[in-house]
Write a protein that binds this DNA or RNA. Structure first.
Lengths: 343, 343
DNA sequence: TTCATTTGATAAAAGGTTTTATCAAAGAGT
DNA sequence: ACTCTTTGATAAAACCTTTTATCAAATGAA
């Protein structure tokens, strides 16, 4: 059976009537503003509690012109980045009573516009755009909106606010960790050179390991990692002692390839990944030491910035790079070596 | 620089003023109701278009008592199931102007209650609860709400509406596929027996492969798949010719284990997974034939049911099991065998 | 010309809340 | 007894839209 009519939510008018005061007094009492006798206030509060009164956010928003609502538009079909980021966003917003609409566009422009229109009609206080890479523009134009926009794991236009992982810092962490573990001959296997993130990380790698250090660009796939190892083993006489991979998936292929060829990790070669995509990095053999991009923190920061913007407070502009962190598992081990032992 | 004051959105009053008609006439013209002269209507429509008028959904909802808004509450921290499901939900709702709030609870009861309260305050028309397994109750009580609730990939209380993948059908597809490929000795390696999904699939397996067929319960991890293969190889004289795995991750461990022992897939053994979690199943060697749970379709159906409920239409009750589908990749091959060749 | 009907448009109420202005009563000071 | 201030409460306006009731003018029929 279907309950035919929803029980009507009780309203401020109900409270006022039950407490035998006017609407204004009830409102003032509940919000602790205006001049209202202490015992009247307490009576109102008590009755409101008793009948379970909760103010209608729609009516409130209509008046205050703040809907306590934001939209998150995502390009990510897979959800790998979106859910951590958006739950980070929500975490900081929910305590301020702000809820987030999630709109997955699947890269479909029509869908994106439909969602955007619905969001604007619903008077969202702001929009957060998230994607899966940093060097691709949103499928819709968000520059002329009359609500603030923040970009998370995506590049906004000039003078907008974008929060992205600091690829350079992540790469630096990875290489430093390998070097501290005594690696002297580090190889970098990564994704397509067309990706900004890949180029950024490769630059850092070359800075730290010498400008002629070999970077193997390829795909963001396990298969490429595997194939790259095949190439390395057939081309080089001596194995590198450390491999810095551009993603956990590539690292997985690398681990797999090395095992196929009887090379032991980390005994013979140390391997480090990038992403800390736990479904991959936790399950490899051995479990993968990798770089975490702190997606939730990106969400936090984006949410915080949005909060400030909706209050009209100023907010930092430009691309804000947030530090990564090193997750130590078992694919890197310290190589005993005279010249790297602590002084 | 921060734009100090947001340009005020233009309202019905602006349209009315510009068209030199009353509010009511403007409203009637735009909605095509009431009696309004054709040329007046066209003037209003033209002007509305020119100044980019869009009705304020908040004001509309306040009056109509339908917010065109629903809440999705999810238990899933990882996003693997939530994003496909919720984007399925949105896909069917967006064309009706309905947007969805996404609330990730991370299993935190306080957070769940906070989100729920915010949703109710915002007058959502309904709530969809999604989880990652079927036999666990939501962290919050959704039974006494005065909005409709639909469960997706989660079990609701008696007489509620839940959409879940049909585990039995999926298992049947998997086993039938192996059998059609000529497998006669099929092994089932799956997750913990405490999970309903694992038990359901195992039941089907036993029904089709004989009641004494061996089921290996373990963990939902790659490691378990790997370990299980080790046990099988040391305990049995003869290898099975087909392995039905309870998840893609287990299947991956199985593939890995088999390769380590020099067993070739699919030449020596066919392997089939469950989930079609593409990041896993696409990247295995060989790519994994598996069962897809049609998560997006679950989202579609949940969204559709929600739509009906918000309209007061009756909706099917109980646990509604939606068919799975077979995704053919390369880990199953037809075994030439006299008694299974087509007649 | 008169009455009844149709047409086109508008005023007003409603939805639930907050805020500003108003007002009566009570108290204080002379 | 008079004014001045404070206290406590309320009416009304506002937010923006939709719907119902109302109304004047125009049209039709007799």
């Amino acid at each position: 059976m279907i309950k035919p009519i929803q029980h009507r939510r009780c309203t401020l008018r109900d409270v006022a009537k039950a407490a035998e005061v006017s609407l204004s007094t009830a409102s003032n009492a509940l919000n602790g503003v205006g001049r209202v006798n202490v015992e009247t206030r307490e009576r109102v509060l008590r009755i409101a509690r008793e009948i379970g009164f909760r103010p209608n956010a729609l009516a409130r928003s209509l008046l205050s012109r703040r809907s306590l609502t934001i939209g998150i538009i995502t390009d990510d079909t897979y959800g790998r980045l979106t859910l951590p980021i958006s739950s980070g966003v929500s975490e900081v917003l929910v305590d301020h009573g702000v809820s987030a609409f999630l709109c997955a566009t699947s890269g479909d422009k029509r869908l994106a516009e439909l969602h955007l229109q619905a969001l604007l009609d619903k008077q969202v206080d702001g929009i957060i755009f998230t994607a899966t890479r940093l060097d691709v523009q949103p499928p819709i134009d968000l520059t002329a909106l009359n609500v603030p926009v923040v970009y998370a794991f995506a590049a906004g236009p000039f003078l907008s606010t974008s929060f992205v992982p600091d690829d350079a810092h992540g790469a630096m962490l990875a290489i430093a960790h390998l070097q501290e573990a005594g690696c002297r001959d580090i190889l970098h296997i990564t994704g397509p050179e067309s990706w900004l993130a890949a180029r950024n990380r490769a630059d850092i790698y070359r800075n730290h390991c010498g400008p002629s250090s070999p970077v193997m660009f390829g795909a963001w796939s396990e298969e490429w990692g595997h194939e790259a190892i095949g190439r390395v083993l057939s081309a080089r006489k001596k194995l590198p002692d450390g491999i810095f991979c551009g993603s956990d998936e590539i690292a997985r292929g690398v681990l797999d390839g090395l095992r196929d060829h009887g090379v032991s990790v980390p005994a013979d070669v140390s391997v480090i990944g990038f992403d800390n995509w736990e479904v991959v990095s936790r399950q490899t053999r051995p479990p993968l030491t990798t770089i975490d991009m702190e997606l939730k923190e990106i969400g936090h920061r984006a949410g915080l910035a949005m909060l400030q913007l909706t209050r009209g407070e100023p907010v930092e502009r430009g691309v804000i790079r947030l530090p990564c962190s090193l997750v130590r598992r078992e694919s890197v081990i310290s190589r005993a070596s005279a010249d790297t032992s602590p002084v």
